[in-house]
Design a binder for these strands. Structure first.
Lengths: 186, 186
DNA sequence: GGCCGCATGTAATCTGTTACATGATTCT
DNA sequence: AGAATCATGTAACAGATTACATGCGGCC
């Protein structure tokens, strides 16, 4: 019962995505993230770090736990989403990523879970990300032009970003083309 | 006199670049990094962190210090490069950046200092970075193709990287075109 | 009077990584 | 016999961030 202060949209909200479809235990999540496929391609979490994050999510009231005893093994700690957890996940997964360094990890993680939730939500995520990228592109482009001829290095820095954002926008188109193809796996 | 173990090419080697042209003190470096131009556009270092890094560089034998007294102000601690420091900087600045997340910060920092050292070294840096990027591009491209049709998400992840690397390669061309234009500022 | 610039840091805190610990079972 | 898998973590350390501390001079 901690005060529901959720400094919004941190990376650990992604973990809630694993619990959205059905409850699981930490080791299972670790296994999925250890594969070099799916989200494991993008997000690497050490085992102890993962357990710590899950404990933190419990402490914040996004998940509750239940022990599932086993023969000859330590009992599994099954994590269930609370209503607050469900809310936090849905908010996180649908919001576009603002800034550069977060794009790689955060957006790809959002996309991963959005795809599991269905085409509508995925479509919306992509569309909002496109808008965010275009805004950012305009800013960088404007700054690049302002520095053209006077500050060559600064201009190159902005040009670099412009190139990366344009590539991202093209890639978002590709995402949308691939979307309709729904496969059970992947 | 610590054993000259320099775990190679960490970001703090960039600081040596500020000392290469002439010795300076911490606050001066901080001022230059606080501007929203030049390297400050790319690399943000908090003041106390900066002092800690400089102390570390001294401890490792890359710089020596000398106190410059002032009236009514705390004395400046002037940092001078040692021979080991000069070596470390030159090695750092000329080596290309291997992997994705380091590209933004590390390469742009290298480029910043390389430009001050002259066209030859800059040209070489760009060329080596191009080679590194092409290798990386081939790897990602191969993996993307292998996943095409079977693992849509994994394919998208690799396609994302392919797009970013291609944009970087184009941008490296731009860098080379701009290079001959040498301006005292920027 | 209060804030900013100069110039240095230390101390406390938060975060992340590495190493260690348990204990039965199955694989080589 | 030794290693890996399952399933949980704790403890120690390293790195980074935030807050705090000093002390003078100039600006509004």
């Amino acid at each position: 019962m901690s005060p529901m202060v959720s400094s919004p949209l941190t990376t650990e909200h992604a973990l809630l995505g694993f619990l959205y479809q059905q409850p699981t235990h930490g080791y299972e999540i670790h296994r999925r993230l250890s594969d070099s496929e799916g989200l494991g391609l993008v997000w690497h979490v050490k085992q102890n770090k993962l357990y710590a994050l899950l404990a933190k999510l419990e402490h914040k009231g996004f998940v509750t736990t239940e022990l599932e005893p086993q023969d000859n093994r330590p009992p599994r700690k099954i994590f269930h989403l609370t209503e607050a957890g469900r809310q936090a996940f849905l908010t996180w997964v649908q919001s576009p990523v603002r800034h550069g360094r977060k794009l790689r990890l955060d957006f790809l993680a959002k996309l991963y879970f959005a795809r599991r939730e269905g085409q509508t939500i995925t479509q919306q995520l992509i569309e909002e990300q496109r808008t965010a990228c275009r805004t950012w592109l305009d800013e960088e482009y404007a700054q690049a032009e302002a520095m053209r001829d006077t500050h060559p290095y600064d201009w190159l820095v902005h040009e670099f970003r412009v190139g990366q954002i344009k590539a991202m926008l093209n890639w978002l188109d590709t995402c949308q083309e691939v979307l309709p193809v729904v496969t059970p796996k992947g």
